[in-house]
Design a protein around this nucleic acid. Structure first.
Length: 252
DNA sequence: AAAATAGACAACCGCGAGGCG
DNA sequence: TCGCCTCGCGGTTGTCTATTT
C-alpha cells in the first residue's frame, strides 16, 4: 500500500506554472497569508498540489527574493557554509537573504562543484583532491543541526542579549570535542543581523578578543590546524579575513 | 540547417519531524 | 502514548535553452 498521496493527483496540474496560476497564488497569499498549503489550492482555485504551491511561492513568487546571478561573495559564503553544514541547503539559505535552498542547491551542483574541482578541491569533503580522508569529517550530525536550529531560535527570541558563548550548547560541544579532540565545533551562527551598531561593536570586540586568544584562521577554528589545510589568512586557496560565525560575515 | 550534447534550473517525489487531538 | 496530518527538506528528474558537431 504505502503512503497516501499528498493530494488528488488525477485532478492536479503538473509541470511549469502559467502566469495565471502565479497570479492566483500571489493574490490568495496576499489576501490570506502563507500557510495551510494543503487547503490553499482549493481555496485559491488552483488545480495544483499544496506542496507545489508552497514550492512555487517560496522559490519564485516571494517578493523578497533576490533574483539574478550570485556574487563572488555569495559564492565564497556558500562554500564556507557548505564546508560547515554539508548539504543542509535550507540552513545555508538562511544565511543568504533573498536566496532559496533550491536555488543554492542548483547553483552548487551546476557551478560551485565545478569551481571547486577546478581548484583541485573535493566538493564533498572540501579537501584537496587525492588527499586521504582523515578520521575527522565535517558533516553535521542531527544533534548538531538541532543545536544550531535551537540557537537560531534563541537568537531570534532575544536578539538584544549579547554574549559570545552560548552555555546551553557547551555540553554538546564538549562531548563533540571529546569524541573528536582534533575538531573544534565551537561555532555560533545567528540570523543575519541588521541590528544596532552598538551590538555589532560589542560583538566585534568580543570576536577580536577570541581571535586574539586563538590567533587562528578558519581551518584552525575548525580544529584543522594540524592538517595541511591550515593556512592562516587563506581558505580554499583564497585569501580571507577572520570569519565571524555569529554573523558569518567576512571581516577583511 | 539539423541533430546531438551539455548546461541550467524549475519542479516533483519521498521521507522525516513536529504539532495536535 | 499513539496515530494522523501538515510542513519542510534534500535528492532526483524533467524540461528548456545554448552550444557544438
Amino acid at each position: 500500500m504505502g503512503r497516501s498521496p499528498c493530494c488528488e493527483k488525477a485532478h492536479t496540474n503538473k509541470g511549469a506554472w502559467t502566469k495565471e496560476e502565479d497570479d492566483r497564488l500571489i493574490a490568495h497569499i496576499r489576501a490570506h497569508g502563507e500557510g495551510n498549503w494543503r487547503s490553499l489550492p482549493k481555496a485559491a482555485g488552483l488545480l495544483r498540489c499544496g506542496k507545489s504551491c508552497r514550492l512555487r511561492w517560496i522559490n519564485y513568487l516571494r517578493p523578497d527574493l533576490k533574483r539574478g546571478n550570485f556574487t563572488e561573495e555569495e559564492d565564497e559564503l556558500i562554500i564556507k557554509l557548505h564546508s560547515l553544514l554539508g548539504n543542509k541547503w535550507s540552513m545555508i539559505a538562511g544565511r543568504l537573504p533573498g536566496r532559496t535552498d533550491n536555488e543554492i542547491k542548483n547553483y552548487w551542483n551546476t557551478h560551485i562543484r565545478r569551481k571547486l574541482l577546478n581548484r583541485g578541491i573535493d566538493p564533498s569533503t572540501h579537501r584537496a583532491l587525492h588527499e586521504p580522508i582523515s578520521d575527522v569529517t565535517l558533516s553535521v550530525t542531527k544533534e548538531e543541526e538541532k543545536d544550531v536550529a535551537h540557537r537560531l531560535r534563541r537568537e531570534e527570541e532575544k536578539s538584544s542579549s549579547e554574549e559570545l558563548s552560548l552555555p546551553s550548547s557547551q555540553t554538546h560541544l564538549q562531548q563533540q570535542e571529546q569524541r573528536c579532540p582534533d575538531l573544534n565545533l565551537d561555532l555560533s551562527i545567528s540570523l543575519p543581523y541588521d541590528e544596532e551598531v552598538q551590538q555589532r561593536d560589542t560583538r566585534e570586540n568580543s570576536l577580536e578578543a577570541v581571535k586574539g586568544e586563538i590567533g587562528a584562521c578558519f581551518n584552525c577554528r575548525l580544529g584543522l590546524q594540524k592538517s595541511k589545510g591550515c593556512m592562516c589568512n587563506s581558505f580554499l586557496g583564497l585569501s580571507m579575513g577572520f570569519l565571524d560565525y555569529r554573523s558569518l560575515e567576512m571581516k577583511l
